[in-house]
C-alpha cells in the first residue's frame, strides 16, 4: 500500500516538474549524465521492474515511466533540448506534442491565408479557392486560381510573392 501511495504522489507531482526535475539532473547535465539518470529512473519505474506487484502499482509505474521517457526523449536530443530550455524560460514545463526532432528548426508562424491577403471581392474569391486547393494538396489548380487573383490585383505585392512561392513549390515537386 505504501508503494501505491508513494507512486500516486509522485505521479501527481509530475505536471509541476520540469523534465530535469523528473529525471533528477541539473540543467547543466551532460548527455552522459542524462542517460545514466534515465537508466536509474528506469530501474525504479520501468513496468518490468514491477512484475508481480499489484495491477495498480504496475499501472502507476507505467504512467510515471512514460513521463520519464518524454523527458528523456527531449533532453537526449540536443535540438529539442535547446528548444525545451527556451520554453522552460517561458514557464512551460512540457514540450508540446508537435515537438519532435523533425520539426526543427522551429516552424515559421502560420501563414496568412490568401483570402486575407487579397483585397478585392473578385480577388478574394479566387484566393479562397486557391487556399482550399492548397489544403488538399492540389497545388497546380491552386496556381491557376492564384494567377487569376493576381490579375485582379496587380498591385498586391504580397499576393505576387505567394504566387512565386507556389511556383517554387511546384518546381520542387517530383511530378
Amino acid at each position: 500500500m505504501a508503494t501505491t501511495d508513494a507512486l500516486t504522489l509522485f505521479l501527481q507531482s509530475l505536471p509541476k516538474r520540469s523534465y530535469y526535475e523528473i529525471l533528477r539532473v541539473p540543467r547543466t547535465a551532460k548527455a552522459r549524465e542524462v542517460k545514466s539518470a534515465f537508466h536509474g529512473f528506469s530501474l525504479l519505474y520501468h513496468p518490468d521492474r514491477h512484475v508481480g506487484a499489484s495491477d495498480e502499482v504496475v499501472r502507476l509505474a507505467a504512467e510515471i515511466y512514460k513521463r520519464g521517457v518524454e523527458a528523456y526523449a527531449c533532453l537526449s536530443r540536443p535540438p529539442l533540448r535547446e528548444r525545451y530550455d527556451r520554453a522552460l524560460e517561458d514557464g512551460k514545463l512540457r514540450l508540446d506534442a508537435s515537438a519532435v526532432a523533425e520539426d526543427l528548426p522551429a516552424p515559421p508562424p502560420p501563414m496568412r491565408t490568401l483570402e486575407t491577403i487579397a483585397t478585392t471581392p473578385r480577388g478574394k474569391q479566387h484566393a479562397l479557392k486557391a487556399d482550399r486547393l492548397i489544403a488538399i494538396g492540389k497545388l497546380d489548380d491552386a496556381r491557376v486560381q492564384l494567377v487569376s487573383a493576381c490579375q485582379c490585383e496587380p498591385y498586391n505585392g504580397e499576393l505576387a510573392e505567394r504566387l512565386q512561392a507556389l511556383y517554387e513549390a511546384l518546381a520542387l515537386e517530383p511530378l
Binding site: K66, V69, E70, V100
Partner: peptide, 23 residues
C-alpha cells in the same frame, strides 16, 4: 495531415512504453 503529409508524433528510437497526446 492536410496535403498528404505525415505529422510525426513519436520519433523512432524512443524508449517504450511511451505515449503522446495530440488534439
Amino acid at each position: 495531415t492536410v496535403g498528404g503529409f505525415c505529422d510525426r508524433l513519436i520519433d523512432a528510437n524512443t524508449p517504450v512504453p511511451c505515449d503522446r497526446t495530440r488534439t
